[in-house]
């Protein structure tokens, strides 16, 4: 496979994952803005900072007005991380690597792009927002379904999956990090209304509010939520789940190419940091410090994969 193709597949799926994650962030933020208008500005600010777009945003806008933030995250072409921009980038990458994709995957991505370029042509009205956000999640699921259902399990598939999980890992770590203070075990606030809202937002941001109830036999508390999002291997957006996926897809590559690369050691190292841990030891280490270094390590791993599989010159 061409190195460029591997890179195109990886970035195509990172972009799609990013579109979906951004939609979730908007959804969670929008909920708070609706229900607790006093906190809206702070909430939007943290959404923007989770999507690592604070500088870009503040260059253009002075206030964190609801409609403005939503528009920035959904549609603005000069925000490289807006849903519009990343879906465009996913589709451009898909065109580039089209010979590696099944017709089903290609059509799903192409359709997604056609749909969004139409849906996002004009600013999205508040009443239409839930529908648009749902469409984003549905389309993302459609592409993923086509991938699972039609693609050979070979290196092409592995690069798609690695892109997905590197992006997801980064995203989950950021979501927790931006609100890490709400997850710190500080007895005086436990159970306060403020915390409850924050916790729910965090869970919603990773579509885990339902699964938490199903999976966790514990009270709604900081430590249980942190444990769920970081260490629970049943949750498809937890850090632990993501690293396990990355390691396993990288291992398939090593097997197929009959060569282990430096990226394999980095990935193993990252997994080791999450394996057989309990949440208390992470609080001990410092939640923020832990998350910052996970974000950094994920970035390094991504970079190493690009190098080892020659995405670029």
């Amino acid at each position: 496979m061409l190195g460029k193709t591997a890179g195109g597949l990886y970035w195509m799926f990172r972009s799609l994952e990013r579109a979906e994650n951004t939609a979730r962030l908007i959804e969670a933020g929008f909920r708070i803005a609706l229900t607790r208008s006093n906190d809206a500005e702070t909430e939007w600010k943290s959404v923007i900072s989770t999507s690592a777009a604070q500088i870009a945003y503040e260059q253009k806008h002075d206030t964190y007005d609801s409609a403005q933030v939503v528009n920035f995250l959904l549609r603005e072409a000069d925000n490289p991380n807006s849903v519009y921009s990343v879906v465009k980038s996913a589709r451009d990458n898909a065109r580039m690597v089209r010979t590696a994709l099944t017709t089903e995957v290609w059509s799903a991505v192409n359709e997604t792009w056609m749909l969004f370029s139409d849906l996002l042509k004009n600013p999205v009205h508040e009443t239409d927002l839930p529908g648009v956000l749902a469409t984003i999640r549905q389309q993302s699921a459609l592409v993923r379904g086509a991938l699972h259902g039609t693609m050979l399990r070979n290196d092409i598939y592995d690069f798609c999956r690695i892109g997905t999980f590197i992006e997801r890992m980064d995203n989950t770590a950021r979501i927790i990090d931006v609100k890490y203070y709400a997850l710190l075990p500080a007895p005086s606030f436990v159970g306060s209304r403020m915390d409850n809202v924050q916790w729910e937002t965090i869970l919603r941001s990773v579509s885990a509010h339902q699964s938490f109830r199903w999976a966790v036999d514990d009270d709604f508390n900081a430590s249980a939520i942190a444990n769920f999002l970081i260490l629970d291997r049943r949750l498809p957006r937890s850090l632990s789940f993501c690293t396990a996926q990355i390691v396993s897809n990288l291992d398939y590559l090593a097997e197929q190419y009959d060569a282990r690369m430096p990226c394999h050691d980095l990935a193993d190292g990252l997994r080791a940091r999450l394996k057989d841990r309990d949440i208390a030891s992470i609080f001990e280490e410092g939640l923020h410090e832990f998350l910052s270094s996970v974000i950094q390590d994920t970035a390094n791993l991504g970079f190493q994969i690009e190098q080892n599989y020659r995405f670029n010159n």
């Binding site: 496979m1 061409l2 190195g3 290196d155």
Partner: peptide, 17 residues
């Protein structure tokens, strides 16, 4: 940009070299 001269031939950059 996927191609360069390698050992007197034109070669493409793949994930394995």
């Amino acid at each position: 940009h996927d191609l360069r001269v390698v050992d007197g031939h034109i070669a493409m950059r793949t994930t394995r070299g």
